[in-house]
Design a protein around this nucleic acid. Structure first.
Length: 115
DNA sequence: ATTCTGACAGCAA
DNA sequence: TTTGCTGCCAGAA
């Protein structure tokens, strides 16, 4: 490795990795991911990482990541403002008023599930 | 090198 | 009670 480029162990890559581990039909929050990564207070960074997830050739189910309220705060960053909601609905989730219904029930905590 | 931003979360009034 | 403000961390300009 001649390049000094960012390694796969970067914070961003970790975010991508965890995000890819979100089960189908489940959702998690930025804070939960941040907490799992050990930087519980950098929830904003998680959103930032997903913002540039386009740099990652792998598909990142970023639509499964919402804020602690279950609100689709990142829908604006998808092609269409309704893309994120459509993706979630296609997975069996119910989204109303940009909010995931039964969010608590569908919530997937990496810290608890992945241990 | 410094400054600002950003798809949040927690706390204060 | 709701609304809004700050704090956090890391990257980009």
């Amino acid at each position: 490795m001649t390049g000094k480029k960012k390694n796969n162990n970067d914070f961003f890559s970790k975010v991508y990795d965890v995000t890819c581990l979100i089960p189908y039909g489940r959702v998690t929050s930025y804070g939960a991911i941040a907490r799992y990564l050990g930087t519980g207070r950098s929830a904003r960074m998680v959103g930032w990482a997903l913002n540039i997830c386009h740099n990652n050739p792998e598909f990142i189910p970023a639509h499964r990541v919402v804020n602690r309220k279950g609100l689709l705060t990142g829908k604006r960053h998808f092609g269409n403002s309704s893309t994120m909601q459509q993706l979630l609905e296609s997975e069996g989730l119910i989204v109303e008023d940009d909010c995931v219904l039964n969010f608590r029930e569908k919530f997937w905590d990496p810290s608890a599930e992945l241990q």
